[in-house]
Design a protein around this nucleic acid. Sequence first.
DNA 1: CTCGATTGTCTAGCAACGCTAGAATGAGGG
DNA 2: CCCTCATTCTAGCGTTGCTAGACAATCGAG
Lengths: 193, 193
Amino acid sequence: MSTQERKERERADRHRLIVATARELAEAQGWDAVTTRRLAERIEYSQPVLYSHFRGKREIIGAVALEGAAELAGALRAAVPAGSDGREAVAALARAYTDFAARNPAVYDAVFSLDNGLPYADEATPAPLRAAFRALLDPLAAHVRPDEEPGLYVETFWAALHGLVTLTRAGRLPGDRVADRLTLLVDRFVPRR
Amino acid sequence: MSTQERKERERADRHRLIVATARELAEAQGWDAVTTRRLAERIEYSQPVLYSHFRGKREIIGAVALEGAAELAGALRAAVPAGSDGREAVAALARAYTDFAARNPAVYDAVFSLDNGLPYADEATPAPLRAAFRALLDPLAAHVRPDEEPGLYVETFWAALHGLVTLTRAGRLPGDRVADRLTLLVDRFVPRR
DNA sequence: CTCGATTGTCTAGCAACGCTAGAATGAGGG
DNA sequence: CCCTCATTCTAGCGTTGCTAGACAATCGAG
């Protein structure tokens, strides 16, 4: 059944096309501009086709989020030399995190701010999300104090990064001095001795 | 001109009614449920009346945000005994902040997450927003290290609180252990000696 | 090779959204 | 008492996410 296979392949291609187009559109004009009509027009199909691939807009955001989480995990891993976990490693990690957010604001929002329907902090949490968390945890684990739990420590550090990212991008924090706040944060979580 | 005064008073009353109703509706059913139609129905006027008080929905959110910021500032002040700035004061401050966010999620979003049209980190920043920031700064100022700038220090601490609040409420962080993360954060920013 | 059945896709439409133009209403001053 | 003018409403525009039902293309059976 070759025609069956061809159809499945074409369908998978179109699936990827939808996700990629949604991402491009979101990154170029923000998620508000990602309407089912515009998206359908860009992929040169009618709206209902979208609903044969995804339950709705939320699930499209979820697909972009999964892709983004995998990339974020990769970027974090790449920023930290394997096995290193000194202060410099944490600083590089933090920089890589905020850089990713700055370079892919729409994707970042899909992963961490928008309603994407994905389960977090749950046994059903998808692998890419776990991978991103692990990429944060590994270089940080060495700096947990004996009286602290590694999970809570990483979560708190992550929350701080997330707060800096979102407040800065929402205009609640001035855009200059971003690097200085990051240094301060790392100093507090990984004291220089 | 007594009738003139009466009209102005009635208009101001209605203004407050709109803001209060928007807030109630947002707190009860989320900001998505605050539509101009529903809001108009609740205040027992037609939609266009809303636009004679506010430029649009964004400005209504802004009005709720200003009210909320003033309340947040009050709650933070009330949580910290006057003049105290020890570790306990900071812990109480952090608890008061997250408590406010938990008890008034919609208002919190209006102030810190939604597009409300207000200027932040700007010379035009409205007084209530400044007041809230000051209420955070005062108990923290004593713990800034000589090599750190107070402004950056407070902003970073604030960002961490904000990150914890938003990630928790968006389901990205498990809801239990909130207090433990807060303790960990305070420990890092105000070391027990 | 043709014909019914099954996929696949599209057109058209629903209810709800933020927002507004212009008609209708009602109170105040002459 | 009536006319004026500010206030309020009705009705509607263009947009949104999503879907029902019509249509077309493809496939397997006879």
